[in-house]
Design a protein around this nucleic acid. Structure first.
Lengths: 134, 134
DNA sequence: ACGTAAGTTCAATGATCATTGAATTTCCGG
DNA sequence: CCGGAAATTCAATGATCATTGAACTTACGT
């Protein structure tokens, strides 16, 4: 019942804006960023994301080859809470992207060398095909 | 008894070379490096090490303000096992240094941006004075 | 040979982590 | 309104982690 009311209210606004909280990049400690990067699956996600030309267009669904939906959700949250990725909710889909500008300002040069480093690692999971954007 | 024999044998060689094993840098996965960096104490050690002009001259003892000897030993091992630092044993002292050349070859640009990132972090522990070299 | 300083090792602790599967929420299309 | 698709949440698991303090090793100086 309450759900119906809320659903109507949100629909009335025309756009669904689920409150997915993103931390202020200045509140992130260096150690927390490295902790978020200390996992092969998350590094694989990051590399795949970096290779998407269009920003904010990668659906979560694209990474099912890496892990189960439930586990992916866990890793997505880790990346988001470390200030590394951004989330956008649209309908039942979620789109994610790298917070490039924020990261470059707070940790200059880090993202690029991390990506370079990760790309060289043969042990990381990789998508079999190009990431379907849409 | 056996200890006496071994002690004599090593002393006879003139130099003490305790077998502190260092991993081949090519065996290190990217995620393992980031895991080693995901701790404020270890980042503090790394930054302090980077500021020492002479290589291989920083005594373990220098970091007692960061943690207890026992805990320091634990963190030193983490850094060493991730291929980030090098150890040299001389008498009862241990000297440590950053494996700069190795890291720069295997993970180009990473160390510098990590140091830059870590230096900006106000939450990291810092040595009260300059690191006594000798 | 003795005492001490420098570090390590070990066992124990509580905390956090990665993973799984089942249940749940949320939304879209018919 | 109903069924399915997308993704999250929750509880439970075993593993690893950071921290502590006590015991131990090793070497130096006297």
């Amino acid at each position: 019942m309450l759900n119906i009311v809320r659903s109507v209210a949100i629909s009335y606004l025309g756009k669904v804006m689920k409150p997915v909280s993103h931390p202020d990049i200045d509140d992130i400690a260096a150690a927390d960023v490295f902790a978020a990067l200390a996992d092969p699956i998350r590094l694989g996600i990051l590399v795949a994301l970096a290779d998407v030309p269009e920003v904010d267009k990668a659906r979560c669904n694209s990474f099912t080859e890496f892990a189960s939906p439930s586990l992916l959700s866990y890793h997505f949250a880790k990346l988001r809470e470390a200030g590394i990725t951004r989330f956008r909710v649209e309908g039942t889909s979620r789109y994610l992207s790298i917070r490039r500008e924020d990261l470059d300002r707070r940790f200059p040069g880090l993202l690029d060398s991390v990506l370079e480093t990760a790309r060289r690692d043969p042990n990381l999971p990789r998508l079999s095909g190009p990431l379907t954007v849409c």
